[in-house]
Nucleic acid binder design. Structure first.
Length: 800
RNA sequence: GCCGGUGUGUCGGAAUGGCAGACGAGGUGGACUCAAAAUCCUCUGAUGGCAACAUCGUGUGGGUUCAAGUCCCACCACCGGCACCA
């Protein structure tokens, strides 16, 4: 049967839409299934084949679930605040609102053309007032609970985009948006205290089913380390110098201390430091370096000794020198370390360069040649001497520190608090008022949303202030608390704010009185399966888990974790095997593929091109192969006859239903499609298929090529939509062949093949094997040592 | 440096310890055609052989096993994450 591909595709898209086939029903008694894909940023460039791949995985699973009788929520929306739209506005003068609306319209029509089974009644747009009202609401809750605060600190700043960036947004020392080098700048900024949730985010990972590398990346990013805080004193003063260490058992090997160039001790003790000029010069030198440079210059250690200051080692009372050096960071631990050159590479290199003593406290290495970081017997360590196990010696030292009141166990995280404001226009206004009398005052809840005012100038100010700062009517306001004159916060939230809770809004997108109805949240949460890109694992995924844990703690949501399961798709590379980019000219436009081949072919190819989780290059010929497959599949309709099929083909059909059903669950779409292709070859070889069997196959292929399957379903007289027809069931008994072919190995090499009944007795099989001509020749005149029969697999004979 | 992953034809890629290379692409030869495209059929890991067949073959070197792409040990290469993190 021949079909005009594009004709049937728009026809079925309209019918699905009209009938509301993909609308989720709140509170339905059927089992629920919430499938979530990362909603797109509606860029001007339009859809990318990567979007199609990202959505196709759960698209297939969602369609399968509907056929299995689930009440499926598979929503889509737009994460529309962000810099690209704003930069476009600065360049063209067109308002971001207009640009956003246009892009959303474009994306929507492109997504519909692919036939995704999204519930279009629940579309959200993070830039709409009725959405960002609740983003602001959550911010106020965070503020109320002390998790949103302002602080002056060194921040990552992108001089090109003129914005402060979070740690997550400046990975590798590069701005996430424009890729220029990020510099460190002291600025008064908003933070969200995500570090408060570090442990919950870590522990929560044990309760969810994430891809192992997703979990691993989050664990790395959170970077928990367990150690001890130890208080050293500055000789001749009451001043303590607190350090963090993971090896407090090496305290007797401490021969000097190092503090970060920014450490406050320097200013506190300025009058005691004799070489303050050199110290300040060094500090200025360090300030010039970007954090990236500072963390890259690993080889050569630099630093300055604080002349006039000495520290006292609390375990042995020895006086030791204090240095400042940029290999110690103010942002980790306490900004100060105890240096154990014998057992730490960096300390060793520093000690060698500055001629400081090296004292061995763990036997096993040669401390003249390098630091020894391995295990060994403790020496020169008073009460720790003789310990050989790191765990025991640390435990003993912790006990001692506690007893003497000079230190205690402590935990550190690499993750830092989330720098949460942007000096930009196109974002959610931060609902805070600065009152000269009352300080920072939250905008009352009933005044939300705090609307983003209309402006005509989108560029940030030269001083790095938001364009909102120029809007007098916006800035000048009354203090909600005292009624006096006050000024509004003019910074906006970062692009990650709206996406940190969007999956909650899908559940109840039009609710005007709360984030979402608690009953509905209870019904739909958690998200059963979330698929997205690996690039979001240490940003969006961490942020949204943090918000969700917080919302759980204040009773707004019924689960601690938002996502029960997380998978990730691999990239689609250009035909040249390189990452797609405009500059390389290797970008494939999904619209053109739909124009030429149709949506079903595009979907099938994207799922067939390789392992779903791995990167794979685009191949136009591969697309054609999938086109052939779908055409041949449709043509096979003409092979339907009243004649029964061979037992072999019938068995192959049941095996395929089984394999496809299983493979789809594991996102092994490529092998599922391959199995159907193989079966189709078998059907053509036989030249015959029954109507019932073909009907089963139409349903089996439906999640992948839904338009074609609806058309075939209709042609066959199927009731309703194929998309809601029952998922095909296989008969386990029919997946078992009556006769099987077994290879016979002699000393590990295949020498013959025999065909036996599947239920044949062991003796009969072995007899048949030995009777095989090839086998008989190979064992002629030799002694049989061993016979192995692996049922259903092979026969292995060992001869001498 | 630490942690994780991967390594298989010409290419994308398949293989609960059990016939390596499923499926697709590409190539080969043929059919149809004036011709091309499309479609259909044949062959397609390497080497030797007219052939049946034999030998070799999953990054390298060892090992376990009747049997190893798969398990173990050592190494090499590439990819990803973290990183002067104390």
């Amino acid at each position: 049967m021949k079909y005009n591909v594009s004709e049937i595709e728009s026809k079925w898209q309209k019918k699905w839409d009209d009938a509301g086939v993909f609308c989720a029903k709140d509170g339905d008694p059927r089992k629920k299934f919430y499938a979530l894909v990362e909603f797109p940023y509606p860029s001007g460039a339009g859809m990318h084949v990567g979007h199609i791949k990202a959505y196709s995985g759960l698209e297939v699973i969602s369609r399968k679930r509907r056929m299995q009788g689930y009440n499926v929520l598979f929503p889509i929306g737009f994460d529309a605040y962000g810099l690209p739209t704003e930069n476009y506005a600065i360049k063209t003068g067109i308002h971001p609102r207009q640009v956003t609306d246009k892009n959303i319209e474009k994306f929507s029509s492109q997504l519909r053309r692919v036939g995704f089974s999204f519930d279009w009644n629940r579309v959200i747009d993070t830039t709409q007032e009725d959405y960002y009202k609740w983003t602001q609401y959550i911010f106020l809750k965070l503020f109320e609970n002390g998790l949103a605060f302002r602080d002056t600190a060194l921040v990552n700043y992108c001089p090109t985009c003129k914005v402060v960036l979070s740690n997550e947004d400046s990975q590798g020392g590069k701005c996430d948006i424009c890729h220029s080098d990020v510099i460190q700048k002291s600025k008064d900024v908003w933070y969200l205290r995500i570090t408060e949730y570090a442990d919950k985010l870590l522990q929560g990972l044990d309760t969810v089913d994430y891809l192992p590398n997703v979990t691993q990346q989050q664990v790395n990013w959170i970077g928990k380390s367990t150690g001890a805080f130890v208080n050293f004193t500055v000789a001749g003063t009451e001043e303590t110098l607190r350090i963090y260490t993971t090896r407090c058992d090496t305290l007797f090997g401490v021969t000097f201390m190092v503090i970060a160039p920014e450490h406050p001790l320097i200013d506190q003790m300025a009058d005691r430091i004799n070489n303050m000029d050199a110290v300040l010069a060094y500090r200025a030198e360090c300030a010039k370096k970007t954090e990236f440079e500072r963390t890259q210059l690993v080889k050569d250690k630099t630093g300055v000794c604080l002349d006039g200051l000495r520290a006292v080692n609390p375990v042995n009372g020895k006086e030791i020198p204090i240095f400042i050096a940029d290999y110690v960071m103010m942002g980790y631990g306490t900004g100060a370390i105890m240096a154990v050159p014998a057992h730490d590479e960096r300390d060793w290199a520093f000690a060698k360069k500055f001629g400081v003593d090296i004292v061995e406290v763990i036997k096993g290495g040669n401390i003249e040649e390098g630091a020894y970081a391995g295990d060994g017997e403790m020496v020169n360590s008073d009460f720790l001497n003789g310990y050989t196990n790191k765990k025991d010696s640390i435990a003993r030292m912790l006990e001692y520190l506690k007893e003497k009141g000079i230190g205690e166990m402590g935990v550190q995280y690499k993750m830092k608090d989330w720098a949460f404001n942007r000096q930009r226009y196109w974002g959610e206004p931060i609902p805070i008022v600065h009152c000269p009398k009352c300080g920072m005052v939250p905008v009352p809840y009933e005044q939300l949303p705090l609307r983003l005012p209309n402006v005509t100038e989108f560029a940030p100010g030269e001083g790095g202030e938001s364009p909102l700062a120029k809007i007098e009517e916006f800035v000048n306001c009354e203090c909600p608390k005292c009624g006096g004159k006050a000024r509004r916060e003019t910074d906006t939230m970062p692009q990650w704010a709206g996406s940190s809770w969007y999956f909650l809004r899908y559940i109840d997108p039009n609710n005007d009185s709360c984030i979402a109805d608690p009953e509905k949240l209870k019904y739909w949460l958690p998200v059963d399966w979330y698929n997205g890109g690996m690039e979001h694992v240490t940003r969006h995924m961490i942020y949204s888990r943090f918000w969700h844990h917080f919302l759980y703690d204040i009773g707004e949501v019924p689960t601690a974790e938002p996502y029960a399961k997380r998978t990730a798709q691999g990239l689609i590379l250009g035909p040249d095997g390189e990452k797609m980019s405009k500059s390389k000219g290797n970008v494939v436009d999904p619209n053109e593929v739909v124009d030429v081949y149709g949506a079903d072919v595009l979907r099938t190819y994207i799922l067939f091109m390789g392992d779903y989780g791995s990167a794979a290059p685009w191949s136009e010929n591969g697309v054609k192969g999938c086109k052939r497959f779908l055409e041949r599949f449709a043509d096979a309709y003409d092979l339907i006859s009243g004649k029964p099929m061979s037992a072999k083909l019938e068995s192959a059909i049941h095996k395929t239903v089984k394999k496809v059903s299983e493979d789809l669950e594991e996102m092994k779409f490529n092998t599922a499609i391959a199995a159907m292709m193989g079966l189709l070859n078998d059907i053509y070889a036989e030249g015959n298929i029954t109507k019932d069997a073909y009907n089963m196959l139409v349903r089996l292929l439906c999640p992948i090529a839904p338009h074609l399957c609806e058309e075939l379903w209709e042609t066959m007289g199927g009731k309703g939509f194929c998309a809601l027809a029952p998922w095909p069931e296989y008969d386990e008994a029919k997946t078992i062949d009556a006769e099987i072919e077994l290879p016979v190995q002699i000393n590990g090499k295949v020498r013959g093949k025999i065909t036996v009944a599947a239920d044949a007795a062991k003796e009969d099989i072995l007899a048949a094997a030995k009777a095989n001509a090839g086998v008989a020749a190979a064992i002629e005149g030799k002694t049989l040592i061993k016979e192995i029969l692996v049922p259903g697999k092979l026969i292995s004979l060992v001869v001498k």
